[in-house]
Design a protein around this nucleic acid. Structure first.
Lengths: 215, 215
DNA sequence: TCGTACCGACCGACCGGTCGGTTTGTTCTA
DNA sequence: TAGAACAAACCGACCGGTCGGTCGGTACGA
């Protein structure tokens, strides 16, 4: 019975994936609340019953979607920072900023779903969205801690600083998401990076040198 | 006939006010989407029909609520800044930061409704919330422009800086709203103020002197 | 022929908004 | 000043529609 299911499991996996993809599209387009399960079914070329065979509830679809997407995001930032040739902590922090912006810039609808829609889809998803914020903040915080430990920047409340950094990035992305204007994100991103580095006491020459080499 | 209406108008005004208060409570508790008009009616000790006598739609209640609240908020910040004894633009910008934090700290549930519930509860609410963001950003931006004009800080992209400032403030408040922890807001606010001022190139001595005098 | 995967008609709950009717309060008249 | 006349304010049952979730049935591979 179990081995008989093996090819089925692969088919099942693909089916789930297709439903998740469809749900992602529909959620991005309509927002979670206004997205009907029937819409997802149509997009996934299946039926409502088919969806409820694979998922226990509409809610669970969003949860799985957000969870896996968040994992991918944080992983991407970490990898981008590790790829940074310089081991200098300031350069790493700068790379993290660039990575966050680049990822969101490259996945506009995903950003919309994760940053904007997540908050409005009820109390549960708000918690989930804020957990995502926390993960990013913790990530940034760890880079700042490293910079403090190496003496690259003066000691400071890295938790507050990381919160401020993420908030600033977040707001910039939100503005970009909402604007009809296509892509000033890269441009304003450079200005933002300078300000954020300055805010934690990185010397002016260091910022200028990063600006020259980094981009 | 017109003067005879005066007492009625007063009664009407009070009734509207009571409905708005009730709506505010219910929206804060449940979020806009999950709040039924019947809930608001119950809380306002009136009926659904009574509400629809005073307002054309559920949507319009929210619009009026957010509009007037935003007016009050922006006005409060402006007044706080104008009350600031120093005419120095850096001190004014610092005062604006303090004012924003103090206002949110003093009106927790209002902040919740405006900052957290706002983004997700449907396209309309989102638009309205982001308009509030824009108003604050424009306000901050004007203070920064003043500081640049007076040469107190080096020239920079004040729109991006204001966005970053507001985003940082926003994220800090969000964290405070969500945490079970009661009130680290004032404390972390001081740290944040220093960082934000530093981010736009305010000299270190100036920040230290503000820290000493301002609080 | 057995069970997994899937379908789609259907259910029940909910919700914003409407509407006919009732209450409340003010003005006019005698 | 009594009370008729009128209108504004208010009530709550109801409606049209939507949507998440269910369930009886079917197709098909093993």
């Amino acid at each position: 019975m179990d081995n008989a299911r093996t090819p089925n499991d692969e088919r099942t996996r693909r089916r789930r994936e297709r439903i998740l993809d469809a749900a992602f599209h529909v959620f991005s387009r309509t927002g979670y609340r206004d997205a009907a399960v029937d819409d997802i079914a149509r997009e996934a070329e299946t039926s409502k019953g088919g969806i409820y065979f694979h998922f226990p509830s509409k809610e669970s679809i969003l949860m799985e979607l957000m969870g896996s997407t968040a994992d991918r995001l944080v992983g991407k930032v970490q990898r981008a920072v590790e790829l940074e040739p310089a081991t200098d902590p300031v350069a790493r922090a700068g790379a993290a900023i660039d990575a966050v912006l680049a990822i969101f810039a490259g996945h506009r609808s995903m950003a919309r779903l994760l940053l904007v829609d997540g908050l409005g889809a009820g109390a549960l998803f708000r918690t989930e969205t804020l957990r995502l914020h926390d993960r990013f903040i913790a990530l940034i915080s760890s880079y700042l801690d490293g910079a403090v430990a190496e003496g690259a920047i003066p000691p400071l409340d890295t938790k507050v600083a990381a919160t401020a950094w993420f908030g600033a990035l977040h707001e910039l992305v939100i503005g970009w998401l909402v604007a009809a204007d296509p892509a000033p994100l890269e441009h304003s991103g450079v200005a933002l990076r300078g300000m954020l580095l300055r805010s934690v006491g990185v010397p002016e020459e260091r910022i200028a040198s990063l600006e020259a080499s980094g981009r």
